[in-house]
């Protein structure tokens, strides 16, 4: 099965004597072409959820299946390879490598897999063209605006042509106008490429771009809304 599935996933932390439940029996399925949003107050388990979805954290119970692969069967090295091949991360604005140009931010992803081919360079240029950064290829992150940085991050997430896109507060530190632009760009780009996407956010204004909206409170995930998303 394509996309990403959670089957009764729980995550516990030991806090001294007490067992603290960060995720409680969470099940969710996001198919290719779907854009899901997860909202919730801070401390609700959003980050734990996204970390498990991103193969950065092992669940205490339950299964996470990404594109048919059960993550609990994988070793750390294989997890890192899976992240590289299957998952594209869009993180907060400051999460670009400061000494790489916009163009190199994309190429480094290819470099992690081995060498960079001519096609890779073309592909990177096309992606950057698509997010309207064609004239910023040689700029460093500190020469970009917040929106431009986030657009670079989106292009970087798509560089390896992954099946899953995970976005962690992608609009934090952006003004409303920029935030709308970024999410709109993500939504249309992901649809066009038929990617399964999950965005964790606290910004409810952005939800109109998502197909499904989940809420997470104290580790419990519930489907809040299913709608026809704005494209």
């Amino acid at each position: 099965m394509k996309g990403i599935q959670f089957e009764n996933v729980s995550k516990y932390y030991q806090e001294g004597e007490r067992k603290f439940t960060a995720l409680n029996q969470v099940s969710i399925s996001v198919k290719p072409g779907e854009f899901a949003a997860v909202i919730g107050p801070s401390g609700s388990g959003k980050s734990t959820f996204l970390s498990i979805a991103g193969a950065l954290l092992q669940p205490s119970e339950g299964n996470v299946i990404i594109n048919g692969t059960n993550l609990s069967d994988l070793k750390p090295r294989e997890l890192s390879k899976l992240r590289l091949d299957q998952i594209g991360f869009v993180l907060q604005t400051s999460n670009l490598v400061p000494y790489l140009t916009v163009f190199d931010q994309l190429l480094v992803v290819k470099k992690m897999k081995g060498s960079i081919t001519k096609e890779d360079k073309h592909f990177a240029k096309d992606l950057l063209d698509e997010v309207d950064l064609a004239d910023k290829l040689t700029k460093y992150p500190d020469q970009l605006s917040g929106g431009e940085r986030q657009r670079t991050a989106i292009a970087r997430a798509l560089m390896n042509n992954p099946n899953i896109i995970l976005a962690d507060e992608p609009t934090a530190s952006l003004d409303t106008q920029r935030a709308f632009e970024i999410v709109e760009l993500m939504a249309s780009g992901l649809k066009a490429r038929n990617k399964a996407a999950i965005m964790v956010t606290h910004d409810e204004r952005l939800l109109k771009y998502c197909d499904k909206v989940y809420q997470i409170i104290d580790g419990n995930l519930t489907l809040l809304d299913e709608q026809i998303a704005i494209r």
Binding site: G54, L56, R77, S80, K81, L82, R83, L84, D85, I87, F89, L91, N95, V97, P98, V108, V109, K111, M112, R156, N160
Partner: peptide
């Protein structure tokens, strides 16, 4: 932090 992000994206320890 930067290395953490690169690792999240999929960079191995070797890289």
């Amino acid at each position: 932090n930067q290395f953490g992000i690169l690792k999240a994206i999929g960079a191995g320890n070797g890289f």
